[in-house]
Amino acid sequence: MRRIDAIGIGIGVFAAGGLAYIILQMAGLNSPEAGIWSQLLLVGGLIGWLFTYVFRVTSQKMTYHQQRQEYEEAYFQKRLEELTPEELAKIQAEIEQENKMKAKG
């Protein structure tokens, strides 16, 4: 996220709180009650966002993790394409030997 995005989100949240306050006052709540309810809505939204963030972190659905995984896959694919047929056959033989060793042990 760029700095300007974070600033925009902050201004948007601030504006949403003010708008909620005005709407609640227009709905008939007095000033302190409208303030409490608008703060409650904002804190509830923050807690909801926090839970989605924790979920994305624990399930490794973060943008950084996905980008890193895609980079690693592209890197290994490129390395695989650069191998000669002899090198590829050697690696495959090593993998088969390791699999046989695991199956025995």
Rank of each mutant, 00 (worst) to 15 (best):
L46D: 00
K90D: 02
M101T: 08
E96H: 01
E81V: 02
R68C: 07
E96M: 06
K100F: 06
L50M: 14
M62V: 13
L80E: 12
V57M: 08
E82W: 03
T58H: 11
E94P: 02
E82N: 11
M62G: 05
V54C: 04
E73V: 11
T63G: 06
Q60I: 08
A93W: 00
L80C: 03
K61A: 10
G35N: 04
Y53Q: 08
M62C: 03
K90N: 04
K78D: 07
I36W: 09
Q39H: 05
T52G: 05
V43D: 11
A74Q: 14
F55A: 10
S38D: 05
W37R: 05
S59E: 09
G45F: 06
W37N: 03
S38H: 03
Y64L: 14
G44D: 07
T58C: 08
N99C: 01
F76N: 09
L83S: 05
S38M: 04
L88F: 12
Y75W: 09
Y75R: 14
Y53N: 04
A93N: 05
E70T: 06
S59P: 01
L42Q: 07
F51R: 06
G44I: 07
I91F: 11
T84K: 13
E73A: 12
A74C: 04
S59H: 14
Q39W: 08
F76Y: 15
T58D: 01
K90M: 02
P85D: 09
L88T: 10
M62T: 15
Q92H: 10
Q92Y: 02
A93S: 07
L42P: 02
I95N: 05
W37T: 05
G48K: 01
H65L: 13
F51I: 09
I47L: 15
E86N: 06
K78L: 09
G35E: 05
H65W: 13
K90L: 07
L50V: 13
V43A: 11
M101W: 00
L50C: 06
A74V: 01
M101D: 11
E70G: 07
A74H: 12
P85M: 07
L80T: 13
K61N: 10
K61Q: 14
Q39P: 00
M101A: 15
Q69P: 00
L42W: 04
G35V: 04
Y75K: 14
Y71H: 12
S38G: 07
M62Y: 09
I47W: 07
E96D: 11
R79Q: 15
A89C: 01
Y53W: 07
E96P: 00
L46A: 15
Q92M: 06
E70R: 15
N99T: 12
L41P: 02
M101Y: 00
E98A: 14
Y53R: 01
T84C: 08
M62K: 12
K90T: 10
Q67G: 09
Q97S: 03
S38Y: 02
Q60F: 13
L46Q: 07
Q60H: 13
Y71M: 10
T84A: 10
H65N: 15
M101I: 09
L80Q: 13
T84V: 14
E33M: 11
L80H: 11
M62Q: 11
G45D: 02
E70H: 14
L42E: 03
S38T: 04
Q66C: 03
L50K: 06
T52D: 03
W37E: 02
W37S: 02
E73H: 13
P85W: 09
L83N: 03
G48C: 08
I91R: 08
